[in-house]
Amino acid sequence: MTTAVVERGPGASLASPGRGRRKIKNGVATTVITLCFLVALVPLVWLLWTVISRGWHVIVKSSWWTGTERGIGYRDPGGGAYHAIIGTLEQVALCTVISVPIGLLVGVYLVEYGRGALSRVTSFMVDILTGIPSIVAALFIYAVFITTLHGQRAAWLVSLALVMLMLPVIVRTTEEMLKLVPNELREASYALGVRKWKTILRVVMPTAFSGLITGIVLGIARVAGETAPLLILVGYASGLNTNLFSGFQGSLPGMINDQFTNLGSGNKAYGLDANGNRVLIHNYAPDRLWGTALTLVIIVMALNLIARLVGRFNKVAN
């Protein structure tokens, strides 16, 4: 109480009727804002709770991480997500390998070199790319590689479609991060006679390093759960296929979609006995669906944590 009085300063005690009203206003505003915060938190906590509570008992089994869905129908227990994890990691890795150099270089160009029309056009194009829905990116790749060039559907085409989604995220964050680097650092470097490319490489980029990593991870998180390119550009395989360039390949979103087609009305499904009578059977697809969803969340979160550690480690080294 005393600190509050001190803050208001002298003269405040004269307006004692207004003081009560202000307190009420303060209380109401605080309550409303706190409530809004909690409401905003509800979907997040609810979602995490649903995914974890329904999925954890599936993923704690070691067979989940080492087995595949090969030979596992909706009536069969067990099975694993190994094929889907490998597929998703491979697709995202290829996408990252393509996107990161291009994205970083475009970002550097826009901040350090870009002047005039070309820079404005590039910036505008990146903005447009940001707004492209994943299904449109997938259709574009389909039109180019399958309709026009008569290629085969394969997982690497998914990576290409994901590049279109990942690239603008990396360019934008790179741009923002490099802009944050104080100009004094660049000037100090130039004053010592260091050339521009070396200044960018040795001064600007290391200073913005953790921010750049964050941008890349945001990009990965953005594409890891994308489903539209998977539905259009590659079939879902329930067994392991490590070849990005041929055949169907499993993936976590693809596996969720596959399990969803057998969701039925929950764990209770029906089958027929030899006489054609309906008998209750257990449907394991919903369990696996939630398990896959949780696995996807865990993988994205793990990537995030790794990136943060990398960023922190680098800061300490400097």
Partner: peptide, 30 residues
Amino acid sequence: AGLIAGVVALAACSSTKNSGSSSTTPAGGA
């Protein structure tokens, strides 16, 4: 008050979800 409201809302949500997901056991075992 806000916290309590939030917690009650969450508890209500989660408890209904819970009972929905845990009530099934295989009967036929075909």
